[in-house]
Protein backbone atom coordinates (compact mmCIF):
# COMPACT_ATOMS: atom_id res chain seq x y z
CA UNK A 1 0.00 0.00 0.00
CA UNK A 2 1.16 3.54 -0.81
CA UNK A 3 1.82 6.07 1.99
CA UNK A 4 -1.46 7.85 1.33
CA UNK A 5 -3.43 4.64 1.48
CA UNK A 6 -1.67 3.75 4.71
CA UNK A 7 -2.85 7.04 6.13
CA UNK A 8 -6.41 6.59 4.94
CA UNK A 9 -6.48 3.07 6.32
CA UNK A 10 -5.51 4.35 9.73
CA UNK A 11 -8.12 7.09 9.45
CA UNK A 12 -10.67 4.39 8.72
CA UNK A 13 -9.72 2.64 11.92
CA UNK A 14 -10.90 5.73 13.80
CA UNK A 15 -14.05 6.22 11.74
CA UNK A 16 -17.18 6.20 13.90
CA UNK A 17 -18.97 3.45 12.02
CA UNK A 18 -21.50 2.87 14.76
CA UNK A 19 -22.91 6.40 14.53
CA UNK A 20 -22.79 6.34 10.73
CA UNK A 21 -24.52 2.97 10.50
CA UNK A 22 -27.21 3.66 13.12
CA UNK A 23 -28.23 6.98 11.64
CA UNK A 24 -28.47 5.40 8.19
CA UNK A 25 -30.51 2.54 9.62
CA UNK A 26 -33.09 4.93 11.05
CA UNK A 27 -33.57 6.41 7.58
CA UNK A 28 -33.64 3.03 5.85
CA UNK A 29 -36.21 1.68 8.30
CA UNK A 30 -38.41 4.69 7.65
CA UNK A 31 -38.16 4.26 3.87
CA UNK A 32 -38.97 0.57 4.14
CA UNK A 33 -41.94 1.33 6.35
CA UNK A 34 -43.25 3.78 3.75
CA UNK A 35 -42.53 1.42 0.86
CA UNK A 36 -44.74 -1.37 2.21
CA UNK A 37 -48.00 0.13 3.49
CA UNK A 38 -50.73 -2.24 4.61
CA UNK A 39 -53.37 -2.54 1.89
CA UNK A 40 -55.93 -5.12 0.88
CA UNK A 41 -55.44 -8.06 1.29
CA UNK A 42 -53.98 -7.10 4.64
CA UNK A 43 -52.57 -10.49 5.54
CA UNK A 44 -49.95 -10.54 2.80
CA UNK A 45 -48.73 -7.02 3.56
CA UNK A 46 -48.48 -7.89 7.23
CA UNK A 47 -46.45 -10.99 6.42
CA UNK A 48 -44.16 -8.91 4.21
CA UNK A 49 -43.77 -6.19 6.81
CA UNK A 50 -43.14 -8.71 9.55
CA UNK A 51 -40.03 -9.94 7.80
CA UNK A 52 -38.70 -6.85 6.08
CA UNK A 53 -39.17 -4.51 9.04
CA UNK A 54 -38.03 -7.05 11.61
CA UNK A 55 -36.05 -5.69 14.52
CA UNK A 56 -32.60 -7.17 14.71
CA UNK A 57 -31.87 -6.84 11.01
CA UNK A 58 -28.55 -5.11 10.37
CA UNK A 59 -29.58 -3.57 7.05
CA UNK A 60 -26.11 -4.34 5.78
CA UNK A 61 -27.06 -4.55 2.08
CA UNK A 62 -28.76 -1.12 1.96
CA UNK A 63 -26.03 0.51 4.06
CA UNK A 64 -23.37 -0.86 1.72
CA UNK A 65 -25.33 0.32 -1.31
CA UNK A 66 -25.69 3.86 0.02
CA UNK A 67 -22.03 4.09 1.03
CA UNK A 68 -20.94 2.97 -2.42
CA UNK A 69 -23.27 5.51 -4.03
CA UNK A 70 -22.01 8.34 -1.84
CA UNK A 71 -18.40 7.42 -2.57
CA UNK A 72 -18.86 8.82 -6.08
CA UNK A 73 -20.91 11.79 -4.95
CA UNK A 74 -24.26 10.16 -5.67
CA UNK A 75 -27.24 11.33 -3.66
CA UNK A 76 -28.51 9.29 -0.76
CA UNK A 77 -32.10 10.07 -1.72
CA UNK A 78 -31.56 8.57 -5.14
CA UNK A 79 -30.12 5.43 -3.60
CA UNK A 80 -32.91 4.71 -1.10
CA UNK A 81 -35.32 2.83 -3.42
CA UNK A 82 -32.58 0.46 -4.58
CA UNK A 83 -31.23 0.15 -1.04
CA UNK A 84 -34.70 -0.84 0.18
CA UNK A 85 -35.05 -3.25 -2.73
CA UNK A 86 -31.86 -5.00 -1.63
CA UNK A 87 -33.24 -5.40 1.88
CA UNK A 88 -36.54 -6.78 0.52
CA UNK A 89 -34.78 -9.33 -1.64
CA UNK A 90 -32.66 -10.27 1.35
CA UNK A 91 -35.82 -10.69 3.48
CA UNK A 92 -37.47 -12.77 0.75
CA UNK A 93 -34.57 -15.18 0.59
CA UNK A 94 -34.61 -15.56 4.38
CA UNK A 95 -38.36 -16.31 4.39
CA UNK A 96 -37.93 -19.05 1.81
CA UNK A 97 -34.80 -20.37 3.55
CA UNK A 98 -36.72 -20.88 6.80
CA UNK A 99 -39.56 -22.89 5.20
CA UNK A 100 -40.18 -26.41 6.46
CA UNK A 101 -39.11 -27.85 3.10
CA UNK A 102 -35.85 -25.88 3.23
CA UNK A 103 -33.93 -25.29 6.49
CA UNK A 104 -37.07 -25.74 8.59
CA UNK A 105 -36.28 -22.95 11.06
CA UNK A 106 -39.01 -21.88 13.45
CA UNK A 107 -37.18 -18.72 14.48
CA UNK A 108 -35.16 -15.95 12.87
CA UNK A 109 -33.28 -13.19 14.73
CA UNK A 110 -34.88 -14.31 17.96
CA UNK A 111 -38.45 -14.07 16.62
CA UNK A 112 -40.71 -16.75 15.16
CA UNK A 113 -40.00 -17.20 11.44
CA UNK A 114 -42.50 -15.91 8.90
CA UNK A 115 -44.29 -19.19 8.16
CA UNK A 116 -44.59 -19.96 11.87
CA UNK A 117 -46.88 -16.94 12.16
CA UNK A 118 -48.51 -16.53 8.76
CA UNK A 119 -48.51 -20.11 7.49
CA UNK A 120 -46.37 -21.69 4.80
CA UNK A 121 -48.65 -20.55 1.96
CA UNK A 122 -48.44 -16.87 2.95
CA UNK A 123 -44.69 -17.18 3.55
CA UNK A 124 -44.15 -18.47 0.01
CA UNK A 125 -46.25 -15.68 -1.45
CA UNK A 126 -44.68 -12.99 0.74
CA UNK A 127 -41.22 -14.15 -0.27
CA UNK A 128 -42.25 -14.26 -3.88
CA UNK A 129 -43.59 -10.75 -3.70
CA UNK A 130 -40.69 -9.19 -1.87
CA UNK A 131 -38.54 -10.59 -4.64
CA UNK A 132 -40.52 -8.40 -6.98
CA UNK A 133 -40.82 -5.16 -5.07
CA UNK A 134 -37.16 -4.80 -5.83
CA UNK A 135 -37.89 -3.87 -9.39
CA UNK A 136 -35.34 -3.33 -12.09
CA UNK A 137 -32.27 -2.71 -9.99
CA UNK A 138 -32.31 -5.73 -7.80
CA UNK A 139 -32.83 -8.67 -10.05
CA UNK A 140 -30.85 -11.71 -10.82
CA UNK A 141 -29.51 -12.83 -7.49
CA UNK A 142 -32.54 -13.78 -5.47
CA UNK A 143 -31.90 -17.45 -5.01
CA UNK A 144 -28.27 -16.92 -4.22
CA UNK A 145 -28.41 -16.26 -0.55
CA UNK A 146 -24.72 -16.15 -0.11
CA UNK A 147 -23.19 -13.14 1.55
CA UNK A 148 -20.67 -12.68 -1.23
CA UNK A 149 -23.37 -12.30 -3.82
CA UNK A 150 -25.29 -9.87 -1.66
CA UNK A 151 -22.22 -7.80 -0.82
CA UNK A 152 -21.21 -7.66 -4.45
CA UNK A 153 -24.65 -6.67 -5.63
CA UNK A 154 -25.11 -4.03 -2.93
CA UNK A 155 -21.81 -2.33 -3.71
CA UNK A 156 -22.28 -2.53 -7.47
CA UNK A 157 -25.83 -1.12 -7.33
CA UNK A 158 -24.61 1.86 -5.33
CA UNK A 159 -21.85 2.53 -7.84
CA UNK A 160 -24.19 2.17 -10.82
CA UNK A 161 -26.65 4.66 -9.34
CA UNK A 162 -23.89 7.21 -8.88
CA UNK A 163 -22.64 6.78 -12.43
CA UNK A 164 -19.31 5.17 -11.53
CA UNK A 165 -17.05 4.18 -14.43
CA UNK A 166 -16.79 0.55 -15.59
CA UNK A 167 -13.42 -0.10 -13.97
CA UNK A 168 -14.72 1.40 -10.73
CA UNK A 169 -17.78 -0.86 -10.87
CA UNK A 170 -15.52 -3.88 -11.30
CA UNK A 171 -13.44 -2.76 -8.34
CA UNK A 172 -16.60 -2.39 -6.25
CA UNK A 173 -17.70 -5.83 -7.40
CA UNK A 174 -14.48 -7.46 -6.16
CA UNK A 175 -14.56 -5.43 -2.94
CA UNK A 176 -18.22 -6.25 -2.21
CA UNK A 177 -17.73 -9.95 -2.82
CA UNK A 178 -14.62 -10.07 -0.63
CA UNK A 179 -16.33 -8.25 2.26
CA UNK A 180 -19.45 -10.41 2.02
CA UNK A 181 -17.51 -13.66 2.03
CA UNK A 182 -15.22 -12.33 4.76
CA UNK A 183 -18.26 -11.61 6.92
CA UNK A 184 -19.53 -15.15 6.41
CA UNK A 185 -16.15 -16.76 7.15
CA UNK A 186 -15.76 -14.75 10.35
CA UNK A 187 -19.32 -15.71 11.31
CA UNK A 188 -18.37 -19.36 10.94
CA UNK A 189 -15.26 -18.92 13.06
CA UNK A 190 -17.12 -17.05 15.81
CA UNK A 191 -19.89 -19.62 15.83
CA UNK A 192 -17.37 -22.42 16.12
CA UNK A 193 -15.80 -20.77 19.15
CA UNK A 194 -19.17 -20.41 20.85
CA UNK A 195 -20.04 -24.06 20.43
CA UNK A 196 -19.63 -26.29 23.47
CA UNK A 197 -16.89 -28.90 23.17
CA UNK A 198 -18.16 -32.13 21.61
CA UNK A 199 -20.88 -30.28 19.72
CA UNK A 200 -18.37 -29.00 17.20
CA UNK A 201 -19.00 -29.52 13.51
CA UNK A 202 -22.14 -31.48 14.18
CA UNK A 203 -24.70 -29.70 12.07
CA UNK A 204 -22.82 -27.53 9.64
CA UNK A 205 -20.12 -29.87 8.55
CA UNK A 206 -19.57 -29.35 4.85
CA UNK A 207 -21.74 -26.25 4.85
CA UNK A 208 -19.39 -23.78 6.54
CA UNK A 209 -15.82 -22.72 5.94
CA UNK A 210 -14.82 -24.02 9.33
CA UNK A 211 -16.63 -27.30 8.67
CA UNK A 212 -14.72 -27.75 5.42
CA UNK A 213 -11.29 -26.29 6.22
CA UNK A 214 -11.02 -26.17 10.02
CA UNK A 215 -10.61 -23.01 12.11
CA UNK A 216 -6.99 -22.32 11.28
CA UNK A 217 -7.36 -22.44 7.55
CA UNK A 218 -10.59 -20.43 7.78
CA UNK A 219 -8.69 -17.71 9.65
CA UNK A 220 -6.11 -17.66 6.85
CA UNK A 221 -8.85 -17.29 4.26
CA UNK A 222 -10.30 -14.43 6.29
CA UNK A 223 -6.96 -12.63 6.32
CA UNK A 224 -6.62 -13.01 2.55
CA UNK A 225 -10.09 -11.62 2.01
CA UNK A 226 -9.41 -8.69 4.32
CA UNK A 227 -6.21 -7.82 2.45
CA UNK A 228 -7.99 -8.15 -0.88
CA UNK A 229 -10.89 -5.90 0.13
CA UNK A 230 -8.52 -3.23 1.50
CA UNK A 231 -6.41 -3.36 -1.64
CA UNK A 232 -9.41 -2.77 -3.85
CA UNK A 233 -10.37 0.27 -1.80
CA UNK A 234 -6.86 1.71 -2.13
CA UNK A 235 -7.82 2.23 -5.77
CA UNK A 236 -10.41 4.80 -4.70
CA UNK A 237 -7.77 7.03 -3.17
CA UNK A 238 -8.78 10.09 -5.17
CA UNK A 239 -12.19 10.19 -3.52
CA UNK A 240 -10.64 11.08 -0.17
CA UNK A 241 -12.60 10.55 3.03
CA UNK A 242 -15.74 9.46 1.17
CA UNK A 243 -14.25 5.97 1.07
CA UNK A 244 -13.89 5.69 4.86
CA UNK A 245 -17.20 3.88 5.49
CA UNK A 246 -16.26 1.19 2.98
CA UNK A 247 -12.92 0.62 4.74
CA UNK A 248 -14.57 0.42 8.11
CA UNK A 249 -16.99 -2.28 6.87
CA UNK A 250 -13.94 -4.47 6.33
CA UNK A 251 -12.76 -3.84 9.87
CA UNK A 252 -16.25 -4.44 11.20
CA UNK A 253 -16.57 -7.74 9.36
CA UNK A 254 -13.61 -8.93 11.43
CA UNK A 255 -13.79 -7.26 14.82
CA UNK A 256 -17.60 -6.80 15.20
CA UNK A 257 -16.70 -3.92 17.48
CA UNK A 258 -20.31 -3.05 18.25
CA UNK A 259 -23.69 -4.68 18.04
CA UNK A 260 -25.77 -3.17 15.25
CA UNK A 261 -28.92 -4.92 16.47
CA UNK A 262 -28.88 -3.00 19.76
CA UNK A 263 -28.28 0.20 17.92
CA UNK A 264 -31.52 -0.11 15.99
CA UNK A 265 -33.45 0.87 19.11
Amino acid sequence: ASPSSVSIRSKAADFDLKTYWTSLMVQINQKLDEAIPVKFPQQIYEAMRYSSLAKGAKRAPPVMCISACELFGGSRLAAFPTACALEMVHAASLIHDDLPCMDDSSSRRGHPSNHTIYGVDMAILAGQFLDLEGGPNAVGFIQDKKFGEMGECSAVCGGLLAGAKDDEIERLRRYGRAVGVLYAVVDDILEERLKPEGDKDRKNRGKSYVGVYGVEKAAEIAEELRAKAMEELDGFEKYGDQVLPLYSFVNYAIDRSFNVDDASG
Partner: peptide
Protein backbone atom coordinates in the same frame (compact mmCIF):
# COMPACT_ATOMS: atom_id res chain seq x y z
CA UNK B 1 -37.23 -32.81 -7.61
CA UNK B 2 -38.42 -32.47 -4.02
CA UNK B 3 -40.10 -29.53 -2.34
CA UNK B 4 -36.92 -27.62 -1.58
CA UNK B 5 -35.72 -27.64 -5.17
CA UNK B 6 -39.25 -26.81 -6.40
CA UNK B 7 -39.39 -23.67 -4.23
CA UNK B 8 -35.95 -22.62 -5.48
CA UNK B 9 -36.69 -23.45 -9.11
CA UNK B 10 -39.73 -21.16 -8.87
CA UNK B 11 -37.71 -18.40 -7.21
CA UNK B 12 -35.00 -18.76 -9.82
CA UNK B 13 -37.49 -18.54 -12.70
CA UNK B 14 -38.95 -15.41 -11.15
CA UNK B 15 -35.56 -13.76 -10.77
CA UNK B 16 -34.36 -14.86 -14.17
CA UNK B 17 -37.48 -13.52 -15.86
CA UNK B 18 -36.47 -9.99 -14.90
CA UNK B 19 -32.81 -10.54 -15.67
CA UNK B 20 -33.76 -11.86 -19.09
CA UNK B 21 -35.78 -8.75 -19.98
CA UNK B 22 -33.05 -6.46 -18.65
Amino acid sequence: YGEDVAVLAGDALLAFAFEHIA
